[in-house]
Write a protein that binds this DNA or RNA. Structure first.
Lengths: 222, 222
DNA sequence: AGGTACATCTCGGGT
DNA sequence: ACCCGAGGTGTACCT
C-alpha cells in the first residue's frame, strides 16, 4: 500500500463530474489498484476514488487513474508532495461476519414452524418475475405461505412482501397465498401496515433459533 | 490525520459482530474522530470503521473506539507498530458535484414535454403528506401527471411513485392522476412492475437534455 | 429526534 | 454480464 500526502487539486469524470480545489489530502493506492482520496474530515468515505480494475499513470505533475475499459477518469494534479511511503502488508484473512440476514434465513428454513404453526418448507428463494421470495411454505391445510425475512421489519419489508404476493396470487393455484413477515424486530408502523394488508408478523429470537439447531445442547447443558 | 501501519487483530461489536485475525493493516484516524481499518486489498471500503462522534482510547496494547452514546465498540489489538505518523491538513474546500439527480430534475422541469407529449409543468416538488413529487404536470386534456425522476429507475422508484399517486388520488379533483417514471436508465423488472400498475416509463438522455446533442441529427446527418 | 430519499452508493449472489 | 437486494449502509434534508 502506498500512502501519499500531497497538496493537490482533483478532477473526476465518470458517472458524474466532480472537482476538488487545491488542498492537502491523503492519496491511498492499494496493491489491487484501488485509489482513494481522503481529506481529514468527512467520515469513512473518500472524497474521490476508483475501484479496480484501474490503470494508473504517474508523471511529475500528478497521477491519472482510468478504468481499464470505460470513460471514467480521475485526474490528480499535485503541487506539493509532503510524504510518499509504501508498506508491504501481505495477505490478510477475510473479515468474519456474524448475525446477518443470511443466517436468519438458514435457521428459519431449518425450522419453518417458527413462522407459523405446522408450516413446512417448500423451497428457499422461491422465484417470481420480480425477484425471489425468501421462503415458500405450506401449512397443514396445504395452503401456501410466502415468508419475507428481515433483520428489522420495516414498512419497506411489508411493501416488498406485498409485491411478491401480488405476483404469486396471479397463479390461480396460489390465489390464496398468505404472507408472513419474520424479523428479529418489527417496527410498530410496519406492524400496522402489515395488519392492514392481512400479513402476519413474527418476531424471532436469533439465540433461540440457534439453539433449536442443536436442541440437545440446551437440554443437557450443565 | 494520523496514519498507523501495524500488525493487529480487530473485534467489532455493534449492529453485528465481526472479527479480523492478526495481519498488517492501515489504521486511519481523522481529526473529526473517524476511524478506519484498511487492508491492502478490497476496494474503497474499510474492513472496519467507526464514524463520528467517537471516543478513542489508546493503550500499549492497542486502540478502543466507542460511540459516544451506544453499544458499539471497535477494539484494535496491536502486536507490532510499523509506522505511526500524523499530518496537518488544514481545511479543504468541499467537493463540487455535477450531474446528479438534481440536475436531471432541473432539465426536465425546463422541458416537461420530454416526459410526455404536450406535458406542461405545474410545479416542481409538488407536496404530498408523505413527501414531494418531483414534477407535477398537466397534458393537453388538462389531466394530471405526477413525474418521478431518477438517475436509474428501479423497483424502488416505482414503489415511491405508487405511494405518491395513492396520496394524490385521494383528492377528488386529481382522482385520475397518472404516473410517469423518467430516468436515464430503467431496469427491466422496474418496467414490468410499472406496466402492471399503469405507470409510464420514459428513458431520457442527459446530453440531449443539456442541448449538447440534437436528437434529429441522426435523421439528417450526411 | 425521526423519517425519507439519494449515492460515482459498494458488494455479493443468482440467473 | 446483468439484475436485484442488503448494508454496521452513510448522508443530507425535511418535519
Amino acid at each position: 500500500m502506498r500512502l501519499i500526502v500531497a497538496r493537490c487539486a482533483i478532477d473526476y469524470r465518470g458517472r458524474l463530474s466532480t472537482f476538488l480545489p487545491e488542498a492537502v489530502r491523503l492519496l491511498m493506492i492499494k496493491s489491487d489498484g484501488s485509489v482513494m482520496v481522503h481529506s481529514d474530515r468527512g467520515g469513512y468515505r473518500p472524497e474521490n476514488w476508483m475501484v479496480p480494475p484501474t490503470v494508473i499513470e504517474e508523471t511529475d505533475e500528478g497521477i491519472v487513474v482510468r478504468k481499464h475499459r470505460g470513460e471514467e477518469r480521475l485526474e490528480i494534479l499535485i503541487s506539493e508532495r509532503l510524504s510518499d511511503v509504501s508498506h508491504e502488508m501481505g495477505e490478510a484473512a477475510p473479515l468474519v461476519k456474524d448475525g446477518v440476514e443470511r443466517e436468519l434465513q438458514e435457521l428459519l428454513a431449518a425450522a419453518p414452524a417458527t413462522c407459523g404453526d405446522g408450516f413446512r418448507l417448500v423451497r428457499r428463494e422461491w422465484p417470481t418475475d420480480i425477484g425471489p421470495v425468501d421462503l415458500m411454505c405450506r401449512d397443514r391445510e396445504d395452503d401456501w405461505i410466502a415468508v419475507e425475512i428481515k433483520r428489522t421489519g420495516t414498512i419497506e419489508a411489508v411493501e416488498q412482501l406485498t409485491r411478491y404476493l401480488e405476483r404469486i396470487r396471479r397463479d390461480p393455484a396460489m390465489g390464496s397465498c398468505r404472507g408472513v413477515l419474520a424479523a428479529q424486530e418489527i417496527r410498530p408502523q410496519a406492524r400496522v401496515l402489515a395488519q392492514g394488508r392481512g400479513i402476519d408478523c413474527v418476531e424471532v429470537d436469533l439465540d433461540v433459533l440457534r439453539g433449536e439447531r442443536e436442541p440437545e445442547l440446551t437440554l443437557f447443558a450443565a
